[in-house]
Simulated assay, not measured.
Amino acid sequence: MTRLVLHIDRLVLRGVDPGDAEALAAGLRAGLARQLAEPGAAQALGGTASRPVVRADQVRLAPGDAAPAQGEAIAAHLVRETLR
């Protein structure tokens, strides 16, 4: 079993209502935990482990989605970008 440790030192949420920031961050944490727990995810990311920063393109979110769902969408986008 491969162990994956992820540290997010700073999360910048531009254009997010301050009242939604914590819920969006919780959705992001949950989405990353779920996706990175998938079989083979840690091994697939092994080659990118030394990348200190992951910058993804702009993430488009569906209008009206709840903040946790937006966080999950961001998590999916980040994982896809990292594996690219």
Rank of each mutant, 00 (worst) to 15 (best):
M1R: 11
M1F: 03
M1Y: 04
M1T: 07
T2C: 06
T2E: 10
R3W: 03
L4K: 00
L4Q: 03
L4M: 00
L6G: 03
L6Y: 04
I8P: 02
I8Q: 01
D9G: 10
R10Q: 08
R10A: 04
R10P: 01
L11S: 09
L11C: 14
V12Q: 12
L13P: 00
L13C: 05
R14V: 07
G15A: 02
G15P: 04
G15C: 00
V16T: 12
V16P: 05
D17L: 04
G19H: 06
G19D: 12
D20G: 01
D20R: 11
A21H: 08
A23I: 08
A23N: 10
A23P: 11
L24K: 04
L24M: 11
L24W: 04
A25F: 00
A25H: 07
A26R: 14
G27V: 01
G27R: 03
L28R: 09
L28V: 10
R29F: 06
R29Q: 12
A30K: 02
A30D: 15
A30T: 11
G31L: 05
L32G: 01
L32E: 05
L32K: 00
A33R: 13
R34V: 04
R34K: 10
Q35M: 06
Q35V: 01
L36Y: 11
A37L: 06
P39Y: 05
G40M: 08
G40K: 03
A41L: 03
Q43K: 13
Q43V: 13
A44T: 07
T48K: 07
T48D: 02
A49M: 00
A49T: 01
S50C: 10
S50D: 14
S50I: 07
S50K: 08
S50L: 13
R51E: 09
R51I: 01
V54M: 11
R55T: 13
R55L: 10
A56Y: 04
D57A: 14
D57E: 15
D57S: 15
V59T: 13
V59R: 07
R60I: 13
R60W: 14
L61Y: 10
L61S: 10
A62P: 08
P63D: 15
P63Q: 14
G64M: 05
G64Y: 08
A67Q: 08
A67D: 12
P68Q: 02
P68C: 01
Q70S: 10
Q70I: 04
Q70M: 12
G71L: 09
A73P: 13
A73E: 13
A76V: 09
H77F: 11
H77K: 10
V79H: 11
T82C: 10
L83C: 07
L83T: 06
R84L: 07
R84M: 05
